[in-house]
């Protein structure tokens, strides 16, 4: 059997815990409960200033989540289109997708954020959140496009041939046969990108979106409690990414049922 064994490792998000790991002391548990423990300790034994800091942050956390989820939604749609474009035999579609990926990947995210934010500002009046989401979505769409492409190409050609020989056309083949299998291979790197994106949303604080980081910076700039504020911000980001990586690990486990003997 000519199975292609493909490992896509992007590796800028977070370590996804292994769902088969049944040990009591896993890296995930140590990090997660350790972080919660430190937060609890700081809030109980040093409520001044940590309680004030954490009270200042909730709306920033909400904004971070809003930007993350909206951007990832946009990035997945753009990524799927770009990925399909990259493998398309249609020269025009292929060229558009490839150019998009080349251009976006060659520009640092921070520069894109500034550019889209201020360039959009001159063209249309969009709220800062929308500008941030568009910028993040477009950037990550390009990375997702490469992940989708690699995922689709990793599926054995035999699957396509079998589907075509039954009478499915190319798009039905993609929809019923290739994508459902590619999704499983794509999920770990997509999850990784998702967590990387969540962390990168801290960049939107630069364009004045009031996310966790900006709220923290505002607090620190007035109280001069830089160390304490950034300690709390780091801990909160860590808790969020750890929870997300756990969720992704579980989803991945569920999707892989047909690979188990």
């Amino acid at each position: 059997m000519r199975d292609k064994h493909v490992v896509i490792d992007v590796g800028d998000g977070a370590a996804i815990p292994d769902p088969e790991d049944k040990g009591l002391f896993t890296a995930w548990r140590i990090s997660f409960f350790g972080t919660l423990g430190i937060i609890a300790y700081l809030l109980i034994f040093r409520p001044d200033p940590y309680l004030d800091i954490i009270k200042f942050l909730p709306d920033g956390i909400v904004v971070t989540f809003q930007v993350t989820f909206a951007s990832i939604g946009l990035a997945l749609v753009l990524g799927l289109i770009a990925g399909l474009g990259r493998i398309s035999k249609n020269t025009f579609f292929n060229l558009v997708a490839s150019t998009y990926i080349e251009v976006i990947r060659g520009i640092p995210l921070l520069v894109q954020l500034f550019y889209i934010y201020f360039a959009l500002g001159h063209l249309v009046r969009v709220p800062d959140m929308v500008a941030a989401i568009v910028a993040m979505g477009f950037c990550y769409g390009a990375y997702m496009g490469e992940v989708f492409r690699a995922g689709i190409l990793s599926i054995d050609d035999g699957q396509t041939e079998a589907s075509l020989s039954l009478g499915f056309n190319r798009s039905q083949t993609m929809r019923y046969v290739i994508l459902p299998q590619a999704w499983r291979i794509i999920l770990p790197p997509v999850g990784n990108e998702f967590i990387a994106l969540l962390k990168d949303t801290s960049l939107v604080s630069i364009i004045a979106v009031s996310d966790i980081l900006r709220r923290g910076r505002e607090f620190a700039s007035e109280s001069f409690l830089y160390f304490e504020t950034y300690t709390m911000i780091a801990l909160i980001y860590l808790v969020i990414t750890l929870i997300l990586s756990k969720i992704l690990s579980n989803v991945e486990h569920r999707l892989s049922h047909y690979e188990r003997r």
């Binding site: 201020f118 004045a208 009031s210 910076r217 007035e222």
Partner: peptide, 29 residues
Amino acid sequence: IGTTGYFAIKAAEGVEPKSYDEVGLAMED
């Protein structure tokens, strides 16, 4: 962010304060 101007906005009732890294970015917005 962290300027007396920004603190004045925060102190004003009913106004939604928005902090920037540089005053020039606020001007552009």
